[in-house]
Structures are given as C-alpha cells and as structure tokens.
Amino acid sequence: MILKELLSQKGLIMQSPKTEEIKKGVEFIKEPIKIFYGETYDEYGNTLDSMKYYFFVDNIAQSLKQEGYETDPIIMVADIAACRNVSPHLHKKYMDLGQERVKFIEKIKKIYNLNLRIIKMSDYIEKKEFQEKIKKVEDICKKDPSLMKMVEKTVPESKIELERKKGFAYSFDEITTILNLNIKIGPPRENLYDNIAREIAKREKSKPLISIYLTPAFPLGVDYDFFIAHEGIEEHGITAYKAGSKRLQSFRIIIGKTTKVEAKKLIEKSFLSANPKLPNPVLDVGIISEMARKRLEGEDTPITLYDNFYNGRISPKKLKESIYNSLCTNILNKLQ
C-alpha cells in the first residue's frame, strides 16, 4: 500500500502529517528510519487494542520500503516504566509480565508475519549512554520553565505531587526514549510527550520527531450512558495497551482471556452510533480484525469498513455480526 493510502485510512488514523511532510522529515537520514511504538502493560493481560499498533508499525515500514527507504520498525515494551506505576514488592512480577508481553508480541509477529524488532526498556535504560541522555534532557527542561510546564502536563493533575517527588522520572524516561526516533506511532494522548521531544529537537537543531496517532481505544459492552457520564473520553479514550485502564478490564478483549462467548456479548452490548464523530469501539474491533485478515491473506489494501458502515452500506446489526465473525476467524482462533 502506498504511504498516502495508508495514512488516509478512516477509523484507523487519528492524526498524521501529510505524506510529503513525512518524506521530507526522513530525507537525508543515513541510517534505517526508526519507526517506533512503545507500550507499558498491567497485570490484566494483552489487549486486542495493542495489536492495532503492531500491525500498523509493520504496515508503515512496508509502505516506506516501497518508497525506497530503509526502515527499522521497533516495538518497545516499557517494563521499567510499568514498574514505576506499582509498589516495589510488585516489581519482580511486573518485570516478568514484561517478558510475557514480549513473548506475546513475538507470537503475533510469527502468526501474522510481521517484521518488527522488539526491545525492552530494561535493555537500554541502565546503559551509560542513555543515562547521559536523560541527564541532558532533564537539564534542558529544568532550565526552561515553559518546558517544565509541558513536562508537568504529561502527568494527571491528581498525581502531580507524587510525580514531582519522583522527579518526573516516568516522563523523562519517555521523552528521552523517543528523542532520537524518526517516526513514532501512538495513541493521541502521547502528543504531550512528543511535543516536548520536538521542542528539545528544535533547540538541539536535530530532526524533529514525526508523530502519527491512531484512533483511541474505547471500552466494549457499554452503552451510551457510559459515554455520557465520561466527559472528555472522546479525546483520548482508554489506554490501548493497558487492559485495566480506568478499571475497565471486563470491557476489553484480552487475548487469551476473553472467550468467544464473552467477546460476542461485549460486541452485542456495545454502543454503536451512526455518527462518525462519536466513539465506535465495535468498529475498532472490526478494523483490527480486518488488519489481521489482510496480514494473514497477504492483502495489501486499505481498510474499507469505516466507509461501508458510515455510508450505510452495512447495518449496525450486520456490522456487529460480521465483526464478531472476523474477530474469531482472524484473531481469537489463531491466538487461543
């Protein structure tokens, strides 16, 4: 698929620079273009929503390859970052969970024939080179109140004092990690980190990070009342890669845990509106399943599900049925 087609897929891409801007942003890079997606995790398991990112990182790497670029598609499992959010006695458990997440991605890679390089945060964070880089980033930010303000904004208001005590370690890890990347794929809320990385790059006169944001994840099995009661959810949704985001683990498809019967129930009970401006968790499952099918069948064409639904070519009832079938055939049956 050519880059332009890839980035025009409705229902998948939330925000992306134009093709020309991306090409301009990566020109004259001598090394393979680093395309990056990083995620943490929790104890509730591996989400279907993460798979969207694995597929997409591979897709964009292929598209750039077709355009003649060398690429280095990376999936980073942020095990150290995941540990920062839990109490110390759980660190060992969370490091093990990180290893399990790596195994899960390896499995996805194999089944769907994805060309991805999987790394862990613990592989590089203790290295001298990275530690020096963090120090430099901290120094740049601490000297500039406007940058520090941006760093503070990466933390929810309720946790700001706690993070201040920790010296915003989580945020600085994240910013340093993405600093010398070329293209970063992530959910929309990561613009908080990405903007800081771009600001620093500007000051350092280096190539700015290119960010591509995919559509946010939303819970399944909830109706309109849930969305009414959760003001602002449209903007960022729930964390795609953390099954227990906002304690909604029972409303997610967790690979290896959610049974087909449960998945069917979740899809059937989900809010589904014909208004494309509103969250559509069902369509999201459909798009991920469709991406999986295309990988399995070697089909390199854009997703059409969004247009088919919003243009009325497929009814809500039919959409739910077909998406459940596609989920089973292309994902659950392959991974369970």
Binding site: Y224, D225, F227, I228, E231, F271, S273, K277
Partner: peptide, 8 residues
Amino acid sequence: DRFLKYLP
C-alpha cells in the same frame, strides 16, 4: 450537549 450527542 452530551445527551444530545449520545442519546439515541
């Protein structure tokens, strides 16, 4: 607003 958006 939110009711207008989401109520069927």
